[in-house]
Simulated assay, not measured.
Amino acid sequence: MKISPADAPWSEVSHNVAIRKQVFVSNGEVPNITQFARSVFAPGQVAPGHSHEDMWEVFLVTSGVLTVEVDGAVHRLEAGASITLAPKEVHELRNEGPEELHLTYFGILSSD
C-alpha cells in the first residue's frame, strides 16, 4: 500500500514518455480501478489523442491549466476543475500554458 507521494516512484505516461506520473493505486489493487495517479506536464507537453475501449477516466486539475480536446470539442480547465471521460471518447491532453500542469486522475473499468 502506498500512503504518500514519497512512497510512489515516478514513471512514464504511456501516451507520451516525456510526461511523468506517480501511481498510487495500480491496476488490480482495487476492483474496477485501473489506476489512481498524478501526472506532471511541462509547458508544451501533450498526451496525443487516444481513447479507451472499456475505461472511464476522471481528471482533476490540481495546478496549471489543462486544455483537453474531447471528440473535437476543446475545453480549458483551471485548478480545481475536473472532467470525466467515457469509454471510446477520443481525448488529447495538453499543457499550453507557461507553468507545469499537475493532474490527479483515475480510471474505472466499464461494467458494460
Rank of each mutant, 00 (worst) to 15 (best):
V68G: 09
E29C: 07
H52Y: 02
G107Q: 11
F106W: 10
E69L: 01
V74W: 00
R94Q: 10
G49K: 03
W56P: 04
T104Y: 06
F59I: 11
H15N: 09
I19R: 06
N95K: 03
E29N: 08
E53C: 05
L77S: 08
G80Q: 12
A86D: 11
S39V: 04
E78K: 09
V65E: 13
G44N: 07
S39R: 00
I19E: 03
Q35L: 15
R94H: 05
M55H: 00
N32V: 02
T34M: 09
F24M: 15
G64Y: 03
V58L: 13
V58H: 11
L60Q: 14
H75W: 00
V68L: 15
S11H: 04
P43K: 07
N32A: 08
D54L: 02
S11Y: 00
H91V: 04
P31H: 09
I3R: 14
I19K: 09
I3C: 08
S63K: 11
S26V: 01
A73D: 15
L60D: 06
R94G: 03
Q45W: 02
Q45R: 02
G44V: 03
E53R: 14
E69I: 11
F36V: 07
H15L: 14
P31D: 14
V17W: 06
P43Q: 04
D112A: 13
L101Y: 07
S14M: 08
S4Y: 10
E53Y: 11
S82R: 12
V65I: 15
T67I: 02
P9C: 01
D71Y: 13
L93Q: 04
A6D: 14
A86E: 13
L93P: 00
R94F: 00
W10G: 01
A86Y: 12
A47W: 04
F59P: 03
E100M: 12
S26N: 14
